[in-house]
Amino acid sequence: MLDTKKVGSVMIVGGGVTGMQAALDLADSGYYVYLVEKSGAIGGAMAQLDKTFPTNDCSM
């Protein structure tokens, strides 16, 4: 692996809460990130929820 080329960018497939977290952490630590989302907006399933357990925090 030592001699192989390493490209400093990453593609993240899926713009839900998981993909967004991965994207933020990578962008924050020095990588160029492509976030690819199938639908018209990021947010994923969590944006559909009203509240979250176990704290009843607003999901949005």
Partner: peptide
């Protein structure tokens, strides 16, 4: 066509 070093799959359920 995009050249990247890694791919992360987070497509959900």
């Amino acid at each position: 066509q995009i050249n990247v070093g890694a791919v992360v799959l987070a497509p959900g359920f």
